[in-house]
Design a protein around this nucleic acid. Structure first.
Length: 761
DNA sequence: GAGCACTGC
């Protein structure tokens, strides 16, 4: 089928296209958009933004731009925007909305436009493309802004940026006065940042009648956005995709991995040429499926067993070079003129939104993915294999129709699709720990969080948990007001516990070490590699970095060793490889560390932040680092429970946990703090470091308050620790009194000084 | 004696 047929199919599915691009709530308007080079072939032949003559390439690209479906909607879009503050635009894949709509606005005279993207690569690559389309240098009139990379200048009129970045900007510019128009793209993905931005913008729009907002989404769920921004007109533009036939299984399958492998083998054996994309849930499952598909294809009866098939895994932790393989051409036929080869790609959800693979004609959809869930009662986020939503199923199917008509095999029944799958995936804000979100909102000046206008309000318990956490950390006062500490914490791109620990480390003179540990904990990928074939050597390589007191200190040692290799002029990548370390992860830790160091230096001027711990003796350093960490993680502490089999109970919650097998502690101390609670078949705590009981009652007496502490051995130990502390405090006070008296005696002899020691009663 | 879906600041 050709392009036109695909468009026709898309048009049939489009309820608005038949009569008008105008949708519900569309109002007549007298506004006439200004004419522009988009209407006239040459305009005055000069670029309005740079004053330079337009290149020939510009006009060539202009021709293709005019053919994009969204171009038809331009005049209506602009007139809507002249009459309304908010517009909801639905445009499916291939409509051109992401590249064209921002240009329509610039062209119509909006001189400061922001367009958000959920992902960095998207912001960057779209900005590059649009700079070419507009015939301007990147970083000039068109720029982008993403973490670690800001390519925008005062002359930038159109900026693509991540949603998280716009949220950051809002912290210093709460009314977003910098912008005349804001476009929230991919709003249907409902990322945490986009959801917070929508709530925020609702208020900003009231304060700034001149500001325009376009919410762009890919699904017909757009009615929800329209309701949220009451009265906003809704427009829809068709996509440019090919039809995809849907096939369901007649009966539910027992095991979706088995079923997926069988389906792929059937396609390879009997269907016309074309690549296959299989959606599975995780790395382990994918590697297993790949192996079985290879084996089963080889076991097919001739001639199918001779077909050229490349079976490739795809998930984000895969090294980039291996990821790249999915974009290479399918293998050639085994014999000249024989059956064309094909790629079979077994992928996680990366292939649903983040990566687009052209040439896929068959999609095998297992109907599952790993999703984050948050349990506020247990205060634990975990990943669960869960059924996908209908929106997600449609997105997956669409991946089969990017270059020609395709087929999607859904490994579930049609009635399951209709009645068991949810319409849309729960937005992230309903599935997350909101500690950071609450901190950000407070920083943005939102006083009443319970009544903040979230599109989907989180459970009150989740908000309570977040408020409680921030109060314990000292970021919020008992009245719920942001403290000075809280303001500083909000500036740091870290979980609140880690921000608190990092800021505490400045006062303890060990911020250099805490910057490193924070950066290492921010690296999502595992630092220590452990290839299956090479486990023994990988483990012994790791042991060289291990610190007996715990994993946090091991991370510190590892990073320190890593940076010294570079300083000594060694080959860092080679060194990482030899030591079974993930050089990509270490590199990203290094960028995070630099960013954090800049921020801390700005927040705490006059301190030697980042360079304060070099001269400390090792034992003193280790103690102070652990005390700094504990200032943020005193709520993530477990106590050893005696008996034969050593186990741990988390404080207060009394959850039974075990040290994660990857943990490097050489003994089983009474008290440990942990970075992460992992919920799988058993409860594990991961990244664990020994702490002294005495530190708990010293650093966090407000949390280790025995009047509301559950009974148990931890409480008994704490009682002893408090008694000891009392005695020590009494001793210290007596000593101090003695010293004071001696000094007073001396001073009397010498005569009085101007600034005597202030006596407190 | 286990395991990292995917983003983002």
């Amino acid at each position: 089928m050709d392009d036109a047929a695909g468009d026709a199919a898309a048009a049939r599915d489009n309820p608005y296209l038949a009569d008008s691009l105008f949708a519900r709530n569309a109002r007549p308007t007298t506004h006439t958009p200004t004419t522009s080079v988009l209407d006239n072939d040459k305009g005055n032949g000069h670029n309005a933004l740079t004053g330079k003559p337009l290149s020939d390439g510009y006009f060539a690209i202009l021709e293709t731009r005019r053919k994009l479906p969204v171009h038809e909607a331009r005049a209506e879009l602009l007139s809507h925007l002249a009459a309304h503050q908010v517009l909801v635009l639905v445009g499916e894949t291939g409509s051109g909305k992401t590249t064209q709509v921002p240009q329509f606005l610039v062209d119509a005279g909006y001189n400061a436009v922001a367009c958000t993207q959920p992902r960095r690569v998207a912001a960057l690559s779209v900005a590059k493309r649009v700079a070419v389309e507009m015939d301007v240098p990147l970083g000039g009139p068109v720029g982008y802004s993403i973490r670690f990379d800001d390519r925008s200048t005062p002359e930038t009129v159109l900026k693509y940026l991540t949603d998280g970045m716009l949220l950051r900007e809002a912290m210093s510019d709460p009314d977003l006065r910098h912008y005349a128009a804001i476009i929230l793209d991919e709003a249907h993905e409902r990322t945490l940042s986009t959801d917070v931005l929508m709530g925020l913008l609702k208020d900003v729009l009231r304060r700034r009648p001149d500001l325009k907002l376009i919410v762009m989404s890919a699904t017909l769920d757009a009615g929800k956005f329209q309701d949220y921004f009451a009265g906003a007109p809704l427009m829809q533009v068709p996509g440019r995709v090919f039809p995809v036939g849907i096939k369901y299984t007649p009966r539910p399958v027992d095991n979706y991995v088995d079923a997926a492998v069988e389906q792929v083998v059937r396609i390879v054996a009997a269907e016309p040429p074309g690549d296959v994309l299989v959606f599975l849930t995780g790395e382990e499952e994918i590697e297993e499926a790949c192996k079985r598909i290879r084996d089963d294809v080889r076991a097919l009866p001739p001639p199918a067993c001779t077909y050229a098939v490349d079976v490739l895994p795809l998930y984000s932790s895969l090294p980039p070079a291996k990821q790249q393989r999915v974009f290479e051409r399918a293998p050639p036929p085994r014999t000249p003129g024989g059956v064309p080869g094909r790629k079979v790609i077994c992928s996680t959800n990366v292939a649903e939104t983040s990566l687009t693979i052209d040439g896929v004609v068959y999609v095998v959809d297992t109907g599952f993915s790993k999703q984050k869930v948050y349990n506020p009662r247990a205060r634990v986020e975990s990943l669960l294999v869960s059924p996908i939503s209908r929106a997600s199923a449609k997105q997956r199917a669409g991946r089969a129709g990017r270059t020609r008509p395709g087929t999607c095999y859904r490994l579930y029944t049609e009635s399951a699709f209709a009645s068991e799958l949810k319409e849309a995936t729960y937005p992230e804000i309903l599935r997350s720990n909101l500690g950071n979100v609450v901190l950000q909102l407070k920083k943005l000046g939102v006083v009443d969080l319970v009544h903040f206008d979230f599109m989907d309000p989180p459970a009150p318990e989740t908000l309570m948990r977040a408020l409680e956490l921030l109060n314990y950390l000292g970021a919020l006062s008992d009245d719920g007001e942001l403290t000075k500490l809280g303001e500083h914490m909000a500036e740091l791109p870290l979980p609140p516990e880690l921000s608190a620990a990092l800021l505490a480390s400045v006062d303890l003179g060990v911020s250099g070490a805490l910057l490193t540990i924070s950066a290492m904990l921010s690296a999502t990928a595992n630092i220590f590699l452990r290839p299956k074939a090479d486990r023994v050597r990988a483990d012994s390589a790791r042991r060289a970095f291990e610190h007996p007191d715990g994993d946090h200190l091991t991370l510190l040692r590892t990073f320190t060793a890593y940076t010294s290799v570079g300083v000594d002029g060694g080959d860092v990548n080679k060194w990482c490889w030899e030591n079974y370390l993930n050089s990509r992860a270490l590199q990203s830790a290094s960028s995070v560390r630099s960013q954090l160091a800049r921020l801390v230096a700005r927040l705490r001027p006059g301190t030697r932040a980042g360079a304060d711990d070099a001269a400390l003796p090792a034992v003193e350093l280790d103690d102070r680092v652990r005390r700094a960490l504990l200032s943020g993680f005193f709520m993530q502490v477990a106590h050893r429970e005696g008996g034969k089999a050593v186990g741990y109970l988390t404080v207060k919650d009394h959850q039974k946990v075990a040290l994660h097998p990857g943990c490097g502690l050489s003994r089983s101390p009474d008290w440990v703090m942990y970075n992460e609670f992992v919920l799988t078949k058993r409860n594990f705590i991961r990244t664990v470091t020994e702490v002294r009981g005495a530190w708990l009652v010293e650093i966090a007496p407000h949390y280790y308050d025995l009047s509301n502490f559950p009974e148990g051995t931890a409480k008994e130990d704490l009682k002893v620790l408090y008694k000891r502390k009392e005695r020590k405090d009494a001793r210290d006070a007596a000593e101090q009194r003695e010293r004071r008296e001696k000094r007073a005696h001396k001073d009397k002899g010498k005569g009085k000084k101007k600034h005597g020691s202030s006596s407190r009663s």
